[in-house]
Design a protein around this nucleic acid. Structure first.
Length: 255
DNA sequence: ATGGCTTGAGTGTCAAGA
């Protein structure tokens, strides 16, 4: 099984690229964030035409998550039980032997923002829920835009970013806490190129200058880690016309 | 220099992203 995560920053704008990418790479599951679409406007027919079924949970303008699969997903859950949140950021489903959780972690804006407090509270709620998920589903894959660069090597200029949102100590601790439910960062199970990032700012030619961050992640449960064959970032879509600022991250699992 | 692009909403120009 191959599982991919991609923050598309508007599925309406990025649909042609998503269709093209699906035809080229044929993952078993493609998890999307920032679809920015109400459910009534989700392009399920266009995706069906290239062989993918859609599970989605969206809203107008902001947020929105989806899981596209070749075989149908079951056991869909679109919110953290007991944590009511009008922002559509969570989607879980069983796909084949896997339980897949797709997350769009709040950005946080800045350390003194209410959005930052929301980010930490949200991560704590999700972590508590994932403890239950992994107990019920040992073959758990948690993917998405985490809006946290776990380590300084995930940041193009750690000095400039020190203490900022995406890298601050409380965010990194929250990320480690989430990992602590029994997950591994699939990307770091393997040798990787220097300066591997999944997001580059649209401004200042950040992509060309390799000024990025690794904030999109695939976490695999410890039970799955030994069957993980690879994890890689595909920077090709970031080179296209009207790219998303994020690029796909994929993992291959022997299941 | 709190900008720099991009998107959505909506038709002005601003919020939000990261």
């Amino acid at each position: 099984m191959r599982v991919t995560t991609w923050n598309v920053n508007s599925l309406k704008v990025r649909l042609p690229q998503v269709l093209e990418w699906l035809k080229l790479h044929q993952p078993d599951a493609l998890c999307l964030q920032e679809t920015k679409l109400e459910d009534a406007k989700f392009p399920a027919a266009e995706l069906q035409a290239v062989g993918y079924q859609s599970l989605y949970c969206g809203q107008k303008t902001y947020n929105g998550v989806a899981i596209l699969t070749r075989q149908s997903g079951t056991g869909m859950l679109a919110e953290v039980p007991g944590y009511s949140d009008p922002q559509k950021r969570v989607l879980a489903a069983n796909v084949g032997e896997l339980r897949i959780v797709c997350l769009y972690v709040p950005n946080g804006q800045s350390l003194d923002s209410d959005k930052y407090r929301y980010k930490l509270e949200w991560l704590a709620a999700v972590t508590a829920w994932l403890k239950q998920e992994i107990a019920m589903h040992p073959r758990l894959v948690v993917v998405g835009d985490f809006n946290v660069a776990p380590d300084d090597r995930d940041v193009h200029d750690p000095k400039a970013w020190e203490g900022q949102v995406l890298v601050s100590a409380p965010e990194r601790a929250a990320f480690q806490n989430l990992i602590g439910v029994g997950m591994k960062d699939a990307f770091r199970l393997f040798e990787q190129p220097e300066r591997s990032y999944s997001w580059w700012d649209y401004r200042m030619n950040a992509f060309r200058r390799k000024m990025g961050m690794r904030i999109d992640h695939i976490l695999v449960s410890e039970a799955l880690a030994k069957s993980c064959r690879s994890c890689s970032i595909d920077i090709e879509p970031r080179k296209s016309e009207r790219p998303s600022d994020h690029t796909p991250v994929s993992a291959e699992l022997d299941v």
